[in-house]
Amino acid sequence: MSSESLIKMANQIGQYFASEPDKAVAVRGVYQHIKSFWTPAMCRELMAWQTKHPDAVLHPLVLAALMEFEKAA
Rank of each mutant, 00 (worst) to 15 (best):
M1L: 07
S3K: 13
S3Q: 09
E4A: 13
S5T: 14
K8S: 08
K8R: 13
K8P: 01
A10Y: 01
G14Y: 04
G14D: 00
F17C: 04
A18E: 03
P21F: 11
D22F: 09
D22C: 08
V25A: 12
A26M: 06
R28K: 10
R28C: 01
G29K: 01
G29H: 02
G29D: 00
Y31V: 07
Q32K: 12
Q32S: 12
H33M: 07
K35Q: 00
S36E: 05
F37G: 02
W38K: 02
W38I: 06
T39N: 03
T39S: 11
P40T: 05
A41F: 07
M42I: 02
C43M: 13
R44P: 05
R44A: 00
E45W: 02
L46N: 05
L46W: 03
L46D: 04
M47T: 05
W49L: 10
Q50S: 11
T51W: 14
D55W: 09
A56F: 11
A56L: 12
V57T: 14
V57G: 12
H59K: 05
H59V: 00
P60F: 06
L61M: 00
L61E: 04
V62N: 04
L63N: 13
L63C: 10
L63T: 11
L66W: 03
M67W: 09
E68W: 06
E68R: 12
E68K: 10
K71W: 07
A73C: 06
A73N: 12
